[in-house]
Design a protein around this nucleic acid. Structure first.
Lengths: 126, 126
DNA sequence: TTATCATATGACCATATGCTCATATATAAA
DNA sequence: TTTATATATGAGCATATGGTCATATGATAA
């Protein structure tokens, strides 16, 4: 995780046999900033777990509280709470408090759109 | 990974305190089949690594061979090859052989669309 | 055939992940 | 205040993941 292209400046020659230097160069110019790339990966990673994905799908319909989600997913409330934290950190869900109960919902419609697009990909490919 | 809702049939009472049974029930009816949910998670997971994401972004422009990608990402060709295998398994990339060289490219435009949508989400949220 | 190049694959290891359990916090009721 | 409810959080552990190294494969050249 720490071996970045720090030492591979744009004009350096590589010791490895690299076939298309121009393409590598072009790819570098087109690449996302390190930090943004990392954030993007974190976003996909947050969606890349079966239980978190179930949670997102459930919240795509209506808001639910933690114990509902725990029962739906079939794991402990603590486990769901840990998962929800990751989803919150990636701005995938938000909540609203009603007394002692927190109602979770999707943060915006990008989430829904991402899932639907991915499902399309999945269903086309086979 | 093996504790599924196998024991939580639709009509059973839960021992845990669950507030909105109807919502849980509705979420169950709306839920994806286990296998499809798993596949969907695998797809997002494949996109949820910084180096694999860089590879996908690079291939979004033009096809590249393994050693190009290795140089671009800044890891060994072996590492890239391992990553490409995951991307192939998720149908995110394909390749074409030209002599001894394999040229990789994105499999379809869903991939590109997913990345752009996720980037939108990222950029809006802050 | 042998040698070489481009890539793939398996074993291994350090780190990351997801869960459980115990505990902490926050709100509401008694 | 004390008690209960709903959720959050930290530690610890088993498994998953991503990299390296060594080796295998597949294509081309000699």
């Amino acid at each position: 995780m720490k071996k970045e292209e720090s030492l591979l400046g744009q004009s350096e020659q590589c010791e490895c046999r690299c076939i298309h230097q121009e393409r590598v160069q072009a790819a570098r110019e087109h690449a996302l900033p390190l930090r943004e790339n990392e954030q993007l990966a974190d976003l996909f990673k947050a969606m890349g777990d079966p239980n978190r994905l179930r949670i997102l799908r459930a919240l795509d319909r209506e808001e639910m509280c933690v114990c509902d989600l725990a029962m739906f997913v079939g794991v402990s409330e603590s486990a769901v709470s840990h998962q929800l934290r990751q989803l919150r950190q990636q701005q995938l869900v938000t909540n609203r408090r009603e007394g002692p109960i927190l109602y979770y919902r999707l943060n915006d419609n990008h989430v829904s759109a991402l899932i639907h697009l991915a499902l399309e990909h999945l269903r086309e490919e086979i």
